[in-house]
């Protein structure tokens, strides 16, 4: 009985996972192989051609999603690392205040935040309208409905998910270890490159995962900030499912996206050195 206790305690979470993750996934996998239409119903025909059709029609959007997700992730890393570094090492007693400020936008709904960004970036909005009024920008200057707007929105919306894990990793770096590097003749740059950066890599790894995956799959930013040329795979899945009621194609696209992301993560983990990352993370 005693040996079973941990398993029994874990049972509710396993049930939860089974009911709300495994069952829907299995259902979706099944739907992705069916044929039919919304009126007459769908029947299982094991038509793997659903995948080929979906990919054939929407490969542009899939590649674009990965491209936008990647661009946003790089932007978040470039902006987020210095912020995390600054809070961890220079934040002093106000660290929690800065972290709170970082999370403050989350008290507003995700969609609403994105729409406000739309207002901000509008051609005649607060920012560009004013600048144009002062003659600092040409009258035909616009950002909304471009790649920049969508990638910018993704970057803005997911930035805290990049900063927080990096901050946690940097916070755990023993300042004496950094002092030891200085003591052993390392310049500030060398101490960062050889000691601080490697020790923060698990945070970077986690941050990239936590931002790249949702950013790539996100439909909201492309819909609110993008134009017709910026459609991402999330939008397609949404339209196929909710508007066209083409459940098999939507499911096939979802699975394709999941597979592509999983393979990408696997390659990424390999490249960054799973061993190093996991080892350092397990420390």
């Amino acid at each position: 009985m005693k040996r079973l206790t941990p398993y029994l305690l874990a049972l509710p979470s396993w049930m939860w996972l089974a009911v709300f993750l495994v069952v829907p996934l299995a259902a979706m996998a099944s739907v992705s192989l069916q044929t039919g239409n919304a009126i007459d119903g769908f029947a299982m025909t094991f038509s793997f051609s659903n995948y080929a059709d979906a990919l054939g029609r929407y490969s542009t959007q899939l590649v674009r999603s990965l491209w936008y997700g990647g661009l946003a992730t790089v932007a978040m890393l470039v902006i987020g690392y210095p912020v995390a570094y600054w809070i961890a090492f220079k934040g002093g007693s106000r660290k929690s205040v800065y972290l709170f400020l970082l999370l403050l936008p989350f008290f507003v709904s995700f969609v609403l935040r994105t729409i406000s960004w739309g207002f901000l970036l509008a051609d005649d909005g607060v920012l560009f309208g004013t600048l144009k009024g002062w003659g600092l920008l040409p009258a035909d200057f616009h950002v909304l409905a471009t790649t920049v707007a969508v990638v910018g929105g993704l970057t803005y919306n997911f930035l805290p998910f990049m900063i927080l894990p990096i901050y946690v990793a940097l916070e755990r770096v023993d300042p004496r270890v950094v002092e030891a590097a200085y003591d052993l003749y390392a310049s500030r740059t060398a101490a960062f490159r050889r000691v601080v950066l490697p020790l923060s890599l698990p945070g970077v790894f986690a941050g990239v995962l936590m931002t790249f995956v949702p950013a790539t799959a996100d439909p909201v930013n492309a819909q609110v900030l993008g134009g017709t040329g910026n459609t991402m795979i999330g939008n397609i899945i949404q339209t196929e499912y909710l508007t066209n009621l083409n459940y098999p194609t939507a499911s096939a696209l979802s699975f394709t996206l999941m597979a592509v992301l999983l393979i990408g993560i696997f390659i990424y983990a390999r490249a960054l050195g799973t061993e190093n990352v996991l080892e350092a993370a397990a420390r």
């Binding site: 023993d174 004496r176 002092e179 030891a180 200085y182 003591d183 390392a186 310049s187 000691v195 420390r283």
Partner: peptide, 16 residues
């Protein structure tokens, strides 16, 4: 880093 002196730290501060 410019001093010809080295230190052994209390908690060793080895590079993990």
């Amino acid at each position: 880093n410019k001093r010809d002196i080295n230190m052994v730290f209390q908690s060793y501060a080895l590079f993990p």
